[in-house]
Amino acid sequence: MAQQHASKKKTAAEELTQVCSVRLGDTLYGIPIRHILEIVGGARTQQVPLAPEFVGGLLHYRGDVLTTVSLRRVLDMPLNLATQDLLVIEHPAGCFGLLVDRVMEVRTVSSADFEPNPSTVSKQRNGLFAGAYKLDGGLMVMLNPGCLEPMRQAMACE
């Protein structure tokens, strides 16, 4: 009986995921914490003339030059002139920065509260989102960090 109870606890623990929640306008988005190397508050990027629209600029980061992706520009939202926060995302092709309005908190979410993308999401946007978690008082839209990677974004723009 004790072994069966321990097995149920293990299954419940395996269904939990830690997610960094970020705000962009009125919408709450999430990125699995395992993809995030660092959070930089009040990041100041250097604009790049003639760069693709999604590029939020360049940033000197730990001795390297980091390309940043503006989540607002990727989602066709108006630019935010206020200071933005930056998530340094680890990707097999290399690290990149993701500019968001504000980093909120790390949340632990359950797979029981997860809903896949609705069929109404366009094919072009479907890869950006992994679905959404139902939270008390709203939803948290999950981002797919691999689809936000700068080279992947550049290919999507062609």
Rank of each mutant, 00 (worst) to 15 (best):
I89K: 03
T68D: 15
T68I: 11
T67N: 15
L50Q: 09
L87N: 02
V69C: 15
D64F: 06
E90D: 03
G56P: 00
T67Y: 04
R62N: 04
F96G: 04
L98H: 05
G97D: 14
L86Y: 15
R73S: 02
D64L: 13
L98P: 15
Q46K: 13
R73W: 02
V88K: 00
Q46R: 10
D64N: 10
V88D: 00
P52I: 11
D64P: 02
L99C: 13
S70L: 05
A51W: 02
A82N: 06
V74F: 10
Q47R: 13
V88E: 01
P49K: 08
G56K: 00
L81G: 08
P78V: 02
C95D: 08
S70D: 05
G56L: 01
R72A: 09
N80F: 01
V100W: 13
Q84I: 04
I89D: 03
P78S: 03
V48E: 15
V55D: 15
V65T: 02
L87K: 01
Y61M: 09
D85A: 15
T83V: 00
L79H: 14
Q84N: 04
L98M: 15
G56Q: 01
Q84L: 04
L50S: 14
H60P: 09
F54G: 05
D101Q: 14
D76V: 07
H60E: 07
L98K: 13
V74I: 12
L66A: 12
L50K: 11
C95K: 05
S70H: 08
V55E: 09
F96H: 09
A93P: 01
L79E: 09
V88N: 00
P52M: 09
D85W: 05
A93M: 08
V100T: 07
L98W: 06
L50V: 15
Q46G: 04
E53M: 08
H60F: 14
G97P: 04
V74E: 13
G94C: 12
V48H: 07
G57W: 14
L66N: 07
V100A: 12
